[in-house]
Structures are given as structure tokens and as C-alpha cells.
Design a protein around this nucleic acid. Structure first.
Length: 585
RNA sequence: GCGCCCGUAGCUCAGCUGGAUAGAGCAUCGGCCUUCUAAGCCGAAUGUCGCAGGUUCGAAUCCUGCCGGGCGCGCCA
């Protein structure tokens, strides 16, 4: 239950009632009215701006309208207290029993707590990673991979029908380079001395087994053949091999896409031609000459007419080329076809996760999607900034030979899947991220992964204490749902419950905003509150979770502890991080 | 030159789509271990939310213009 939207519904009923009695005019629209947690908990549990938002169109003073609403809200179930503050905020305080009932709800729901139906089963396509199939994934890809994957899980939890997709860029020139590079390795596998891999080809030794595999399959039949004969075959073979490699890389992060779309397949099936024809018929394609970019002119600039898409009619800064000088489609052309294809496959919401270096591309794709779907589809591009690898504050110098980069696999091997997944979400996607390989192994509050895991482990530690203190006690979740929760009376205990009850709202908010990093911040704050309560008992032994002489009180507090465990586990599950039961070695 | 992103405490960053007195970690200072794991907790101090206008009952948040940083800028993907 999202407490805030639940009470928004209550408020809407009262607004409607005021319309019926004539206090508010007919047609009053409560859409802009919000119910949220106040910034200062002293103000209550919930606050609404309703009186301020609705007063003006109704010709009322905000505080007068607030009075009318407050009178009605006071009558509602669970509302303990209502007051009006500042320019017209209505602050609600809910009964302690209402909050205690959230614990039962949490324990009953288990890890599914926080699931929501706001998505309404709406299909969402999220495309992420989509690295060129020319080699293993590196650290930069890891961020987009995690952001995309967790956003997908988040949307799923919020009730959307999510499809995880990977676009294989296998139609451009770079896969020909890949094929030629594999050919070198093929010759090498047949005992030819190839020397250094020539400039412009991929030197990585991950292509050695590819060359060897082709040699094993085909023998020396390609050695004397012209490039035109062997290239398509080598290209397909090595792209497939690279995609296997990439799938394995993603596997170490526990990421798997449901759909892999091939650019080449799209082009060969005539998908691009079809879309271009559509645009042509709509009068959105013409041959023209673009202005050279102002300021720094490219060295080889020469004016020439091009086939252009009228992107500037749809919000882009300029029109965009669709054909290369050799007559083949530009990447943009096939990307238009690809996005239209996604829309036609039934996705009104498209999310793309890209590296920030592709930022200049966002507008033109948005323009294309707008043109091709009559503005029906919504596209949101999440740009991921750089990841800086550090070692204790200094730029990391993880073993890298010249010409290679730190691979995703190296990173996961160094710190583990869970750490990579968590750390990648400790910043907004559009903020640069420092990933300190030393710090993430520290066991301190400075390391959010540890801190949150410690909270989860501590719930188990406390449970062991309880079992020791009451060898015959039943502290199972089923039993604890029946605990006498009225024994939870400390203000910090109740504050912690309220924080737990904010989880469904956090899920919905993060999902709607497409901001998975909010989960990491929520969990960190929740962990801090739990640790604080635990520590408070150090000074006040009566607050300890386990009270040896009072089993019923212990049971009530264990219900709270298990609820904390449940919500932390629920959050980590969305993040794809495995919770630990114990940290001590 | 143009576009996009960013500018919040000494440092690193949040700020829940416009709400009340702007928050957290690190660092600094002061407390707290015969312990439910001090791998931590509590408290103090810290601000021209880059600058200037505007919209609004209300702006770190939206609009405009500057300043500063990053990324990108026709036939790479």
C-alpha cells in the first residue's frame, strides 16, 4: 500500500464532497493536488497542498478552504490529527495503530512488498548495453548495463510489462573491420606469421579463438580467396562469437536480455527502405546541402548535397543525413527504422540507455520517433556519464596492456557482482561516477554497499539473539504477524515503521521518473535509521530488540526487525544484489 | 559558434517532477565500548543552492540572459 496515494484518494473524495455542497465549483480538478511526506516530520505524517492549489480558481482564501477540508479529514478513519500551517498546508497525523498495521502488511507481503499496479500492465521497451559486437564489454558498459537492468526490474515491480532489449549494431563498417581482424587470426591459426595486427584492426587476443575456430571448421579454403568471398562469412561468424562473449560478460552481472535485434537483419529485410518510403510519402525527405558547423570546421569539409530527414520540423536543431556517399543508409536511418519497429511491436514507451558521448544524438532520434509515430510514442533516453576507476583516491592502474581497456569481467572479478551493481546506482545516471576499488572493500559507513548489507546481516544477528534468549519462542514471520504490536511505542520505532512504509512510494516514484538510483539512496537511509535505533539501545537497554524478561515485547520488536529485513531484501532484489545474512568471517 | 548535461557545506553528492527553517557522507571538533557485532552511534560547526532578472501564494527545482565545467557537432556507431 502506498500510504500517500491511498490518502490522496481519500482527499479526492472530500474535494468531491465539497464540490457537491457548493464550497468548490463544479469541474474542480484535483490533479495538481499532492499528498506527500512533509520535509520536517514535526509537521506530521502527511501533508497536502490541496487548499493552496484549489483556492484560487474557487475564489477562496487558502486557509479558509483548508479549514473546510480539515474538518472533513478529521472524521476519516486512522486520521488522528489535522492541522493547518503556513500559507495553507494541511498536515495529517495518522494513528500509531495505522502505522503498526503496516508491519503486518510488510511481513505478509514479503519481498513482494512495494509492488505496485501504477504501470497498469503498459508495455515498456528498454534497450540497454547495445555495445558494438566487436569485443568484450568494458567498465563504461557496466554502468549502462546496471542502470538499464535495474530500471527494467523497477518498472516491472511498478506494474509495467517490461521487455529488455539489445540492439546489435552489426551492419556498419566496424563489423567489417572485425571480420578482417578475425581473418588475421585465422591465418595465424594456420601457422602463418602475421606479425603485428595492422593499424586500424582490432588487436585484442579475444579474436584468437575465433580465427582458430574458423580454421578448424574450414581448413585453409579461405587463404587464397578474395576478401569479397570470405568477408560475409567471417563477419557473421565473428559477430556471433562476439555476441556470445558479450552475453557471457553480462552473465557475470546476472543480466540477460529477452530480445536481441540485429541491425543487419532489419536492413536486409527491407525495414529501412520501408521506413524511408513512409517518410518520403510524408514529404519529410529531401536532397539538400547542410550548413557547415559554425566555429571549428572539420578539416575535410566540403559542401555536398545529401539526402536529408526534416528533423528540424520535429524539434531537432538541423536536418539530418540519411545516406552515406556510397549510397548505403547512415546509422541514423536504420536507427529510425529500428525505433519505429519497436513501436510497431507494441511499445508506446521506449527507453534507451546510452553513454553520455551519444548525447548529441538524443534530439534527432526523438524527432524521428515523433515523426514516425505521429507523436504517439514516448521515448526517454537515459545518458550515463563516465565511470572513473580509482584506487584509494588515485586513478586506477588495473593491469592493462597498451591498446586494451579494463573489462567488465576484470571489474566483477575484482570486487564482485553485488558491489558493481550497487555502486553503479550510487549516483544519478547523468552524473559522473567515481568507482573506488579500495573503498568498496572497506567496511565502513563510507561504503554504502557494506552499510546496507550490514543492516540486513544485523537483522539476522538479532534474530539469533532472540532465539538464544527464548529457545522455545517462535519468531517465524507467520508467528510475528500475530505479535502485540501495540508494544511498539518508542518514537524511533514508529519513525522506522514510517520509513519502511515509504518503500512503495519510493518504488512508484523512481519508476515513474525512470530513476533507479533512488533505490540505493532509500536503502542507505533506511539502513542508517535501523543502525541508529540499534545503537540507541546501547544507552537505553530497555530499547533493545531482545528483552530477556519480556517475550511479548521481544516478539513485537522482532516483527519490526523482520520488516526491516524484508524491505531491505525487497530493495536489493530490485537492484539485483544478493543480501547477506552474516558479515563476520 | 550551436546543442545537450552539469554547477548545492572545505571535498563527494542527495534533494521524491513547484512547497514550510536546503540535507547526508567524508573531513574538523566534542561525547560514547564490563557490547544485542564500536565494522558503529550521538552531538556541534559548516551555505550568496554559479550570477542577474522573470513566472508563482511559494523557486535549488520552471522561463530568459550571462559566467564556469563536461560531452557532442555532415557520409563513425
Amino acid at each position: 500500500m502506498n500510504v500517500f496515494s491511498a490518502f490522496k484518494a481519500v482527499l479526492d473524495e472530500e474535494i468531491e464532497a465539497l464540490v457537491e455542497v457548493g464550497t468548490l465549483p463544479a469541474g474542480t480538478d484535483p490533479a495538481r493536488v499532492s499528498v506527500e511526506p512533509p520535509r520536517d516530520p514535526e509537521h506530521g505524517d502527511l501533508t497536502t497542498n490541496g487548499a493552496m492549489v484549489l483556492a484560487k480558481p474557487a475564489g477562496l482564501k487558502p486557509r479558509d478552504l483548508a479549514e473546510s477540508l480539515a474538518e472533513r479529514l478529521k472524521q476519516r478513519e486512522f486520521v488522528q490529527d489535522v492541522d493547518i500551517a503556513g500559507p495553507g498546508f494541511i498536515n495529517l497525523r495518522l494513528s500509531d495503530d495505522f502505522w503498526r498495521a503496516r508491519l503486518v502488511e510488510i511481513l505478509a507481503a514479503g519481498e513482494s512488498y512495494g509492488e505496485s499496479t501504477v504501470g497498469g500492465g503498459k508495455p515498456v521497451n528498454i534497450e540497454y548495453v547495445s555495445a558494438n559486437p566487436t569485443g568484450p564489454l568494458h567498465v563504461g558498459h557496466a554502468r549502462g548495463a546496471v542502470v538499464g537492468d535495474v530500471l527494467a526490474a523497477l518498472l516491472d515491480k511498478a506494474g509495467y510489462a517490461v521487455t529488455r532489449e539489445y540492439y546489435i549494431n552489426d551492419a556498419g563498417g566496424q563489423v567489417d573491420v572485425l571480420a578482417r581482424s578475425a581473418y588475421m587470426r585465422y591465418r595465424e591459426a594456420l601457422d602463418e606469421d602475421i606479425g603485428e595486427i595492422p593499424e586500424g584492426l582490432y588487436p585484442g587476443d579475444y579474436l584468437v579463438p575465433v580465427g582458430a575456430a574458423i580454421a578448424a571448421r574450414d581448413g585453409d579454403k579461405w587463404l587464397t580467396a578474395d576478401e569479397a568471398e570470405w568477408l560475409p562469412d567471417f563477419r557473421q561468424f565473428s559477430v556471433d562469437a562476439m555476441m556470445d562473449l558479450i552475453r557471457e560478460d553480462l552473465g557475470v552481472l546476472n543480466i540477460s536480455h529477452q530480445v536481441f535485434s540485429s541491425e543487419r537483419a532489419l536492413v536486409e529485410a527491407g525495414g529501412v527502405d520501408a521506413v524511408m518510403e513512409t517518410l518520403e510519402n510524408d514529404g519529410l525527405i529531401y536532397v539538400g546541402t547542410l550548413e557547415p558547423p559554425k566555429g571549428k570546421l572539420p578539416d575535410d569539409w566540403e559542401e555536398r548535397p545529401q539526402t536529408l530527414f526534416r528533423a528540424s520540423d520535429f524539434g531537432d536543431d538541423t536536418d539530418r543525413p540519411l545516406k552515406k556517399s556510397d549510397g548505403s543508409w547512415t546509422y541514423f536511418a536504420s536507427d529510425l527504422a529500428y525505433h519505429e519497429d519497436k513501436y510497431k511491436r507494441g511499445f508506446p514507451v521506449l527507453i534507451d540507455v546510452w553513454g553520455a558521448d551519444h548525447g548529441g544524438y538524443v534530439k534527432r532520434v526523438g524527432a524521428g520517433v515523433k515523426a514516425l509515430t505521429d507523436g504517439e510514442a514516448r521515448i526517454d533516453v537515459k545518458l550515463c556519464q563516465m565511470v572513473r576507476l580509482l584506487e584509494d583516491g588515485e586513478p586506477a592502474k588495473m593491469s592493462k596492456r597498451s591498446g586494451t581497456f579494463v573489462t567488465l569481467r576484470d571489474l566483477v572479478q575484482a570486487v564482485g557482482k553485488d558491489v558493481v551493481r550497487f555502486i553503479m546506482l550510487t549516483r544519478k545516471n547523468d552524473a559522473p561516477l567515481d568507482f573506488d576499488l579500495v573503498k568498496v572493500r572497506e567496511q565502513s559507513r563510507d561504503n554504502p554497499v557494506f552499510y546496507v548489507q550490514y543492516a540486513h546481516a544485523r537483522t539476522h544477528s538479532v534474530a539469533r539473539m532472540a532465539a538464544d534468549a527464548f529457545p522455545d519462542g517462535d519468531f517465524s514471520i507467520v508467528a510475528l504477524k500475530g505479535a502485540d504490536l501495540a508494544r511498539l511505542t518508542d518514537s524511533d520505532e514508529l519513525a522506522l515503521i514510517k520509513q519502511l512504509a515509504a518503500w512503495p512510494r519510493t518504488v512508484e516514484g523512481a519508476a515513474e521518473a525512470h530513476e533507479p538510483h533512488r533505490l540505493a539512496f532509500y536503502l542507505y537511509d533506511l539502513a542508517a535509521a535501523f543502525h541508529a535505533l540499534w545503537s540507541k539501545a546501547r544507552g537505553e537497554p530497555g530499547l533493545r530488540f531482545v528483552i530477556a524478561e519480556d517475550e511479548e515485547l521481544t516478539r513485537a520488536r522482532m516483527a519490526l526487525v523482520l520488516a526491516v529485513r524484508t524491505v531491505v531484501a525487497s530493495g536489493l532484489a530490485v537492484m539485483g544484489v544478493t543480501p547477506v545474512d552474516e558479515l563476520r568471517e
